[in-house]
Nucleic acid binder design. Structure first.
Length: 870
RNA sequence: GGGGAUGUAGCUCAUCUGGCUAGAGCGUUUGACUGGCAGUCAAAAGGUAGUGGGUUCGACUCCCAUCUUCUCCA
């Protein structure tokens, strides 16, 4: 059975059990500070389990794209070495939000595996929670009883808290779970060792395929458990493993999820899979990582040097590294696999198809840049090897190569071992540890427990309609960070403050306390569906009613910029074409930034056209049409662009200005006329195929034009108000260059004369051509002159004095042969004579300068100069 | 967010602890050899050393600020 069918059968099966089938949520998370990527099927539904939101559908099933790069069994550096771990994987899941529980979850799981997928039940084992005394939890007899209706009792295994009690984190919803394991070893091996003893023992062919979590408790901050008001089911089945089982393979990588990619790698790189262990690992790494990176890019996460982008970059670079070293490919090739991936998975994940070109470009660009880094590193490593005495390269050097130049440490180790050298790994690791400690120390934020004043499940956002409100604090906590000191995070029962999101910055403002004092709110952010206000202080009495006020001016400017961003988006699609898609957006009060997919630099004409387009819509004073809490389908009917990034259960808000319809949670002006004016300030590239436009609106454009205009009139004024200022400047420039040339010629002439005069004055003393004179020239000219004369007169000893700004300067030039023959040293001369002008100096033996603050001493110094050759 | 590095001629890079009027290769231009091209030889042009301050007799070099790019960590 093909993997596509396996996925479809799962979804069909649960649809037949009255489940709503929903699309996968994005793998990249945007509004969760605690998590960068969806790392389990339950992540998109977190809010329902936390009780922050009520589910509209009680039964749901889906396949969720997930990414794991760290964790017990998922260290990035381990992926590819075995045959069953991945960075990106699909997790099939069925969910009950306060609906069915253990009985249905267990019997449906069995029905699907045995009756639909036809897995031999003699291959299956299940585990049941054995209980935990410290939590006062007993054996999960209920689950056991349901299982024994289907499976031999000796195939039911007890599991401890670590394996069979699932928790979301240190706090929050949790509950016992029951896992289904499958033994796919050959009959012979099964005869030798019983599968039962291999369950949960990291055996590649005795693996867990499905985990059924029965969520019924809430872990409180003090560690105690309380019963949840409703019971939920959360299941997760690894899709790749399921395919391995159903396709009778011994490795996930031998299923048709991966084989098309592996065949393609073989073809491109002329390496065969299944011949040599290290080649196989490299091919697995590439096939796995390509999926992770491609899906991340499709979700809008480009490789970068911070945060989630950095994780993606690291994954991609690891793949490049393996190709470079073990497949011996020294040029970009991974990008070529995108086509295959998109063909294979684009059917179910249309974002892959839609973004294919972009993914290809971005990967290719990233490959190129990393290959450059590798080249540079190879040269540097060569240098290090040459400068190393003995055979051990210091860990510090290797760390520098890694830390500063991005050269992978395993490559360093490999190259060294090829040359019979070793690497001091202990030192390297200690350097790495130091750097980690440093980074952590800088990022340290101490967060106290929430102090809950009032239980209020949903904090209402009222900021679309008002900028002021009387509110109560429902919970608060103290946070201290090294950089910003102490501050408080407050949650209100309702708030007019817009939390950072959708590219728009969070609101600032203040809290009015009873005695007329104010407490400033410096930022507003969203965390797990809570709107959190960052305040400098806590009101004396946090339980009283408070008046909170949003900074109106800043909000208005931000709002103008946000609405203008929509118009800009429309303009770009209209003028450049529909390949333009938003790739990022930042809306501040000062300006706006919009990143979008487009293949070429915008011409000045295009930029002008875009500006005009937006301004035309501002001029036509289009009123805002706002649709709150409408189902996605309705929004799409209105013409909103379908975005990959919405998840199940979301009702959306649509913002319409004429033809521009967007799904958006941001704040918007009532009428485009309010924006007043729109002006692009820069256009640039941020990645292959991605351009960025920065622009300003409203007041900012007034300032912009005012400043420019002012500068222009100042320039015109300086030029005596010419009719054609541009021509005046060109003329001026031309005049300037001819004058420069003339001056240069004159100076040369003058210098020649001066030089001639001075040469006349040179006296021969003891076979040395001596000259000591005070000159009315600047230091640079004296230097030039000295060298010029030195070129013409042999055996020259020249001492020059000069005065400027009340300071005295001495310059000494001595022909090189004199330096050697007579053991003269200009530096020494200048240092000694420098005392006469109350200063010091130095230089090289044949040319030196000194400076001091006593011009009166110049004459004496010049006199004394002669003594050196007498 | 924290650390490290980086910015010098059109390009790739030198210039050691401050001092050889900032150099090389490639490229460009000109000339010579050749019937022409390729090629060889010769010569020339080309630099506010990212920017702005500071220290110093003297700063590409040291200090401070700021920007660019790269990179590791969180």
């Amino acid at each position: 059975m093909k993997s596509q069918q396996i996925r479809q059968q799962f979804l069909d099966f649960f649809a037949s059990k009255k489940h709503q089938i929903v699309a996968s949520s994005p793998m990249v998370l945007k509004n969760d500070p605690t998590l960068m990527f969806t790392n389990a099927g339950m992540v998109p539904f977190k809010e329902y389990f936390l009780g922050q939101k009520t589910a509209t559908e009680k039964r749901v099933a889906d396949t969720q794209k997930c990414l794991r790069v760290s964790g017990k069994h998922n260290d990035l550096e381990e992926v590819g070495k075995d045959t069953y771990h991945h960075t990106m994987f699909e997790m099939l899941g069925n969910w009950s939000f306060g609906d069915y529980f253990k009985k249905e979850a267990i019997s449906w799981a069995w029905e699907l595996l045995v009756d639909v997928y036809k897995i031999d039940k003699d291959c299956l084992y299940v585990t049941v929670f054995e209980g935990a005394e410290e939590d006062g939890l007993g054996y999960d007899q209920e689950a056991y009883n349901y299982w024994k209706q289907f499976i031999d009792e000796d195939r039911i295994i007890n599991g401890n808290k670590k394996d069979n009690f699932w928790e979301m984190g240190a706090q929050g919803p949790c509950g016992p779970c029951s896992e289904i394991h499958v033994d796919i070893r050959s009959a012979e091996e099964k005869a030798k060792i019983s599968g039962k003893s291999l369950v949960n023992n990291d055996h590649p062919q005795v693996v867990e395929i499905w985990n059924l979590v029965f969520m019924e408790f809430n872990r409180k901050a003090d560690g105690s458990l309380e019963k949840l008001p409703a019971q939920h089911v959360d299941t997760g089945m690894g899709f790749e493993r399921l395919c391995m089982v159903l396709q009778n393979k011994q490795s996930n990588y031998d299923t048709d999820v991966f084989t098309p990619l592996i065949r393609e790698v073989e073809a491109i790189t002329s390496n065969d899979y299944g011949v040599k262990e290290e080649t196989d690992i490299a091919i697995r790494v590439i096939a796995d990582h390509l999926r992770a990176v491609a899906f991340a890019i499709a979700d809008g996460q480009l490789p970068s040097n911070t945060g989630a982008g950095y994780v993606i970059r690291r994954i991609l670079r690891r793949a490049i590294r393996y190709g470079f070293t073990f497949l011996n490919i020294k040029e970009p090739f991974i990008y070529k696999l995108v086509n295959t991936l998109s063909k294979q998975m684009g059917e179910y994940f249309p974002e892959l198809k839609a973004q294919k070109q972009l993914i290809t470009n971005v990967i290719k660009e990233e490959e190129n840049s990393f290959l450059r880094t590798l080249d540079q590193g190879l040269v540097l490593l060569d240098g290090i090897i040459k400068n190393t005495k003995g055979t051990e390269v210091s860990g510090k050097k290797a760390f520098e190569l890694f830390d500063t130049y991005g050269f992978p440490i395993d490559l360093t180790a490999l190259i060294l071992s090829e040359k019979g050298m070793t690497l001091n790994e202990v030192d390297f690791n200690s350097e790495l540890e130091k750097q980690k400690t440093r980074s952590r120390a800088a990022a340290v934020v101490e967060t106290d427990d929430w102090v809950i004043l009032e239980d209020d499940a949903e904090e209402e956002f009222i900021g679309y309609d008002t900028l002021e409100a009387n509110v109560k604090i429902t919970r608060y906590r103290k946070v201290s960070s090294k950089k910003e000191g102490n501050f408080y995070q407050l949650v209100f029962n309702m708030t007019p403050f817009y939390p950072e999101g959708g590219g728009q910055v969070g609101d600032k403002g203040y809290i009015e306390v009873s005695n007329g004092n104010v407490i400033y709110i410096v930022d507003t952010k969203k965390e797990n569906n809570l709107i959190i206000h960052f305040a400098e202080n806590l009101p004396k009495d946090p339980t009283q009613k408070l008046k909170v006020v949003v900074d109106e001016k800043q909000r208005f400017r931000t709002t103008c910029n946000h609405s203008a961003t929509h118009l800009l988006h429309q303009a770009l699609r209209e003028i450049l074409g529909t390949h333009v898609e938003q790739k990022g957006s930042a809306v501040h009060s000062k300006n706006l930034r919009f990143d979008f997919s487009h293949f070429a630099k915008l011409t000045t004409d295009e930029l002008r056209e875009v500006e005009d387009f937006v301004n035309a819509r501002i001029d036509s004073k289009i009123p805002l049409k706002e649709f709150r809490n409408i189902p996605m389908e309705t929004a799409l009917e209105k013409g909103a662009m379908a975005l990959f990034g919405e998840k199940y259960g979301d009702t959306v808000r649509a913002i319409q200005f004429g033809q521009s319809v967007e799904l958006c949670g941001g704040t918007h002006i009532q009428n485009t006329g309010d924006i007043w004016h729109f002006k692009i300030t820069s256009e640039s590239a941020i990645a292959s195929g991605i351009r960025r436009i920065e622009a300003i609106t409203g007041d900012a454009t007034k300032d912009f034009y005012f400043e420019n205009n002012k500068a222009f009139f100042e320039i015109k004024d300086m030029l005596k108000n010419p009719v054609n200022p541009l021509k005046a400047i060109v003329d001026l420039q031309e005049e300037n260059t001819t004058l420069k040339k003339q001056i240069e010629a004159l100076l040369k002439d003058k210098a020649k004369n001066l030089k001639g005069d001075l040469i006349q004055e040179v006296e021969a003393i003891n076979g040395v051509n001596f000259l000591a004179k005070k000159l009315d020239l600047d230091q640079n000219s004296i230097k030039d002159l000295a060298f010029e004369i030195g070129n013409q007169v042999d055996n020259l000893f020249l001492l020059a004095g000069a005065e400027s700004d009340g300071k005295a300067f001495l310059t000494c030039y001595i022909s090189k042969n004199l330096v050697e023959e007579k053991k003269l040293n200009a530096g020494q001369v200048v240092r000694e004579l420098g005392k006469l002008i109350q200063g010091g100096g130095g230089g090289q033996p044949f040319f030196a300068t000194a400076g001091g603050k006593n011009p009166a001493g110049i004459e004496e110094a010049l006199q004394k100069g002669k003594e050196y050759i007498l």
